[in-house]
């Protein structure tokens, strides 16, 4: 039915990010069931899967926003759930682009972008603004956008500002939650190009969760598929069309018929 999940990392080198045997359930509904995923330094991995399958829960476990019921989540070998200090230290090395961009409505664009610099790094507002304007330019937004409020931005602009905020602190790890959802195909491709360019420039490790195959193919070096709470296949992005896995083939071809049977109602937490 499905090929066993292969483990990319191994040998003596500790992976940058490692989720091992991660389990998570909500009110008895199992979402993650022994999920294993390792990501090497500088690697870009996309996790694909149907809606409600647990991709966002996996990401929240990695961010420390949810505590796994079992298993371990490590960054550079350090266990995230060990204590609050470890989690906070890890957060300072992570940038995150949310599905809805999650921009702060009460702050202008430049303060959204500079938020991590001002609050987490204690940078002065003048210097932080300069860096914010430079970072906005990196994602194709001019200085005139800096003083706008998020309510005045289009969907594509919001994503760009969200991306600028994610990379402004020059993080070692960048996480992307459905980066192209809600965008037209052209804008989605623009965002994909920006993501690739930013990740390459920073030399960052990237994890993207998406169900947009065009996005996954463009962004990722490696693609992993999550189903029934676990990774059921993973391999180089170029090999996904010859995966030999029925679930993957059904998903990437967008067929209703196949081994994946969608529930009528999606899981509330996933």
């Amino acid at each position: 039915m499905s090929a066993p999940a292969s483990s990319r990392a191994g040998g003596a080198n500790e992976p940058k990010i490692a989720l091992r045997g991660v389990c998570k359930a909500f009110d008895g509904a199992v979402v993650l069931e022994g999920l294993d995923l390792e990501i090497g330094t500088g690697e870009s991995v996309a996790v694909i899967g149907c809606s409600g399958v647990g991709k966002s829960v996996m990401l929240k476990c990695l961010l420390g926003l949810l505590r796994p019921d079992a298993g371990s989540v490590t960054i550079d070998g350090a266990e995230l759930s060990a204590n609050r200090a470890a989690r906070e230290a890890a957060m300072r090395r992570i940038g995150m682009l949310f599905q809805s961009a999650a921009l702060f409505d009460s702050l202008p664009v430049w303060e959204n972008v500079a938020f991590g610099l001002i609050q987490a790094q204690g940078m002065g507002r003048g210097e932080a603004r300069e860096i914010a304007v430079e970072t906005l330019a990196q994602v194709g937004l001019g200085p005139d956008a800096a003083d706008l409020y998020p309510a005045a931005l289009s969907g594509g602009m919001r994503k760009r500002v969200g991306l600028a905020r994610a990379i402004a602190t020059r993080p070692e790890i960048i996480l992307f939650d459905e980066p192209t959802t809600g965008l037209d195909p052209i804008m989605a491709d623009v965002i994909n190009d920006l993501i690739v360019a930013c990740v390459r420039e920073l030399g960052a490790t990237a994890l993207t969760i998406t169900h947009d195959m065009a996005s996954a193919r463009k962004i990722a070096d490696r693609i992993a598929m999550i189903h029934d709470g676990a990774i059921i296949w993973q391999g180089p992005a170029a090999e996904i069309d010859s995966s030999g896995n029925e679930h993957v083939e059904q998903f990437i071809n967008g067929r209703a018929d196949g081994p994946i049977r969608l529930a009528v109602a999606d899981g509330a937490h996933a």
Partner: peptide, 17 residues
Amino acid sequence: GTMRVTEQIDALTTLST
């Protein structure tokens, strides 16, 4: 509440705040 349901509170956490 709006910040919660639009993930702005999660975003604060990811920005070390």
